[in-house]
Simulated scan of single mutants.
Amino acid sequence: MKAVLWSFFGVRKSRDHAADATQLNPLHVIVAALIAAALFIGGLIAIVHLVVG
């Protein structure tokens, strides 16, 4: 999950990226990215509803 969250910001050390490439399962990364994206979008929608309504 940490690798996915860092990738949302676009900052990652090349050493950590190389380690992630060898250790992480692509399916787990995809699932974690979908969950993180859904939480991010849900948070944005909640903030908009709070401000507007």
Rank of each mutant, 00 (worst) to 15 (best):
G42T: 05
A3Y: 13
G42C: 02
T22I: 10
F8N: 04
D20A: 06
D16E: 15
G10K: 00
S7W: 04
V11Y: 09
V4H: 01
S7F: 05
F9I: 09
V52E: 08
M1T: 15
D20T: 04
A38R: 11
L39R: 09
A21G: 14
Q23F: 03
A33C: 04
I35E: 11
I47S: 07
V29M: 01
V4M: 02
S7R: 03
R15L: 09
K2Y: 13
M1V: 11
F8M: 13
G42Q: 06
L39T: 14
V48R: 05
V51Q: 02
V51R: 07
L27G: 04
V29D: 02
Q23S: 13
L34R: 10
G43E: 08
L34Q: 10
Q23C: 02
A33D: 08
H17M: 10
L44I: 06
L27K: 05
P26R: 01
A33K: 03
G43N: 11
A3T: 11
A33L: 07
Q23P: 02
A21R: 11
L39F: 11
T22W: 07
A3R: 06
L50I: 08
A37I: 05
A21P: 01
A19D: 13
F9E: 10
V4G: 01
S14E: 15
I30L: 12
D16F: 03
D20I: 00
T22H: 07
L44F: 12
T22V: 12
G42H: 00
L27I: 00
V4Q: 00
V51Y: 12
I30Q: 12
I47G: 03
V52Q: 10
G53C: 00
F40R: 09
A46F: 01
V52C: 01
W6M: 15
L50A: 14
I30P: 02
V48Y: 11
V11Q: 10
I45V: 13
W6N: 14
G43H: 04
D20Y: 10
Q23D: 11
V4K: 04
